[in-house]
Design a protein around this nucleic acid. Structure first.
Ligand SMILES: [Mn+2]
Ligand SMILES: [Mn+2]
Ligand SMILES: [Zn+2]
Ligand SMILES: [Zn+2]
Lengths: 171, 171
DNA sequence: AAGTTAATTGCGAATGACTTTCATTATCAG
DNA sequence: CTGATAATGAAAGTCATTCGCAATTAACTT
């Protein structure tokens, strides 16, 4: 695997247990994380954080709401949105809003990566490409900008969906 | 300018007249473009298309609405949205929806490019980087995807805003 | 442990960007 | 010119997200 090649990252869907590059962060108790934000440790915040950290990645606010509501039905949407925003502002989660669909979030305690999404079945592959990152810096510098962030989302058709399409066409 | 370097593209803001890579498309009358879509040639479509093609780039539906309404106050929002969608579906305009803000559109009769946006003053620089494009293809192929599109938006602080910040800090 | 109080919650209403509905109007093939 | 059909505009509807606010609660302070 050359430094130029993209590396697949474990995704919730096809994931097997394996050691992460940031194992420590994953052991920090939720309570501590909330305290570090200088806000009150409430049951709802603990529950939301639990879902955020231990549930599937690339979740929507709705996903979090439903997961929490399963055990704590009084939870309100506003609470979920408010806390997700706080987490996002403090870089604990990454928020991606695209294409007029609900925002998706993911716990940021993992290595930086971008997404390759199947336009047909919405499957998400995470990848990391240092060469692209480097070129982005270079572009920014070229225009005198200091780069503060980026959004790179690739869209395509995954092998499975392509196979299905072919089968359908052939018929 | 090496093949690795990004090329600045003319942007409405700081633009000087210069020959485009697709001059022909820019001469096609609006009427003809609409006819090619097999839809009726209406006054509102002609006016919208005029704004889309001759107004500033990276406009919102609201921008188009206001520009058209200036001369034709009966125009409705629905008409603007409907036609922008049609144009977008037929690749005459590119639609970019990001960060929970209104979608921005641009006439697609120009070379493909991505955007570098100032997080402070919202200035937009268009750039083109064939090396990044190539690497995107490579990533997709690596995962067996056929690439159908991508969104690459870089965020940073432009030189001017950086200067302002420094001045403010120093004081 | 009880009291104080400011942060937090959950509800419902409000927003904002579209989209849909539908009665009225305009286009254009014949 | 004329009728069939598409397009328009006003208003109502969606949908994700945010706001306002009275009731609740976490985290101090006695
Ligand atoms: Mn991810
Ligand atoms: Mn552009
Ligand atoms: Zn797929
Ligand atoms: Zn700026």
């Amino acid at each position: 695997m050359t430094p130029l090649s993209a590396r697949a990252l474990p995704v919730a869907n096809h994931q097997e247990p394996l050691q992460r590059s940031v194992p420590r962060a994953d052991r920090v108790p939720n309570k501590k994380i909330i305290r570090e934000l200088n806000i009150k440790v409430t049951t709802q915040r603990l529950m939301i954080l639990d879902v955020v950290r231990n549930g599937p990645s690339h979740f929507t606010a709705q996903d979090v709401f439903e997961a929490v509501a399963a055990r704590h039905p009084e939870i309100g949407f506003a609470t979920v949105y408010r806390f997700l925003r706080t987490l996002s502002e403090h870089k604990y989660v990454t928020e991606v809003r695209m294409g007029g669909m609900p925002a998706r979030y993911e716990w940021a305690g993992k290595r930086h990566h971008d997404h390759l999404t199947c336009a047909s079945c919405s499957k998400i592959v995470e990848f990391e490409n240092t060469e692209i990152e480097r070129l982005q810096e270079k572009v920014a510098k070229q225009f005198g900008f200091s780069l503060t962030g980026h959004v790179l989302e690739l869209y395509g058709i995954c092998p499975e969906c392509r196979a299905k399409e072919n089968a359908a066409d052939r018929r």
